[in-house]
Amino acid sequence: MKKLSLVMIVRNEEKKLERCLKSVQGSVDDIVIVDTGSDDRTLEIARTYHAKLFQYPWNNHFAEVRNYALSKSTGDWNLVLDADEWVTKGNRQQLNNFMDNQQAIGQIRITSSFFDGADSFAHCYTSRLIPRNVFYKGKIHEQIDSTLPRINCDLEVAHDGYYRTDKSERNLSLLLSEIQDYPRDPYLHYQTAKEYYRISDYENANKHYALSYSFLSGTESYYPNVVVDYLYNIMKYGNMQKGLEIVQSEESRIGDFPDFYFVCGLFYMNLVSSDITKYIYLFPQIETSYLKALEIGETSEYLTVEGTGSYAAAYNLGVFYETTGNREKAFRYYKEAEKYNYEPAKRRLADIS
């Protein structure tokens, strides 16, 4: 049987580390933790789980610290997690099946919680199960440096590192430093744009979304997310005509992505409202977009926000129909959203009943 090690880098994670370590009990053979300067109970908690502990001074370079941790692992395979993540589904037998039969990087499904006016969740597949002698590159939002294929495996993880937490100051400093070395890297510009968006600096976000979009080849796995997030920022920053050009040019490329049609529904609504005389001909696209999002559903392999292919799209359709006087259809789609226990839909049903 292949040996599997959990490999982590941590600093001051006393509030979350035990949740992570407890979740992998019975699934990993040993635990390797590199600490970058904790002054709380992090190391004490790690010792209770018999972790192999190492120290590495923080140097503003995530890949270097991550690679140091990997160098201390004796596993045939390494599972890489952060302290703010924990396993919610999957077992050792499933991991063994993957490790025994694949020459690949294992992608695990991560559900991230965040607050955007309401509690929300995003799902994505991320490369975290890696064979020995595979390492990382990048100061921040580090990526696995390997040509091995990426294959989904049966492991699901929850993540709350960005839930009501602001890491933008640290992240922007590292990202902007990295961009100086790689000024045409679309991924770095994309991550930078997202950090500016989080702090409501839509002007700088727009600058980096535009750069990322211009440098993309179209084959990147995160390409659809750049498009969608760029459109959200355009609705905050302005330049709706540019947004319309993006919407009309991207449907043929990412038409299997529910988040794309969901943001299109919002975009068309904002566009028509901005100049009714000029854009009224696009009014039917609001309905069409949400219907397409529901038709696709939530089976996308992209990073997708929960609800864009189900309850959120159904609720927005309900609002559309209610405001256009079609109470029968409004009731129908509010009921559809209510099936997911979606509170806004419950409230509207109570009002129109």
Results as ranks from 00 to 15, higher is better:
M1A: 12
K3H: 07
L4N: 01
L6N: 05
I9K: 01
R11Q: 15
R19Q: 10
V32T: 11
I33S: 09
D39K: 14
D40Y: 07
D40A: 12
E44T: 14
E44G: 01
I45R: 00
T48G: 00
T48F: 00
A51W: 05
K52A: 02
N59E: 15
N59C: 15
F62K: 08
R66I: 04
R66G: 01
Y68E: 12
A69P: 05
L79Y: 05
E85G: 03
N91V: 05
L95H: 02
N97A: 11
F98P: 11
D100K: 09
Q103L: 08
Q103I: 07
I105D: 03
G106T: 08
I108Y: 10
R109W: 06
F121N: 13
F121R: 14
C124F: 07
Y125E: 02
N133T: 07
V134G: 10
K137L: 08
G138H: 09
E142S: 15
Q143P: 00
I144W: 01
T147C: 04
L148R: 06
N152M: 10
E156P: 00
Y163G: 02
R164E: 04
S168L: 03
S173W: 02
L175C: 08
E178V: 05
R184Y: 08
P186G: 06
L188W: 08
L188C: 07
H189E: 01
Y190D: 04
Y196T: 08
Y196G: 01
R198S: 13
I199E: 11
S200T: 10
E203T: 09
N206F: 14
Y209S: 10
S212G: 15
Y213G: 03
Y213D: 04
G218F: 06
S221I: 11
P224I: 13
V226W: 02
L231G: 08
I234P: 04
Y237H: 15
G238D: 04
N239F: 02
Q248M: 14
Q248P: 00
Q248V: 02
E250A: 03
P258R: 11
D259G: 15
F260A: 09
F262I: 06
C264Q: 11
C264Y: 13
L271P: 03
D275Q: 09
D275H: 07
I280V: 11
L282E: 01
L282D: 05
F283Y: 13
Q285H: 13
E287A: 01
T288N: 14
S289P: 01
Y290V: 03
A293E: 04
L294C: 04
I296C: 03
T299W: 00
E301P: 15
Y302F: 14
V305A: 10
T308V: 11
S310M: 02
L317D: 14
L317Y: 10
G318M: 10
Y321G: 08
T324Y: 09
T324S: 14
R332L: 11
R332C: 04
Y333V: 06
Y334T: 10
Y334C: 09
K335A: 09
A337V: 12
N341Y: 10
N341Q: 13
L349F: 03
S353A: 03
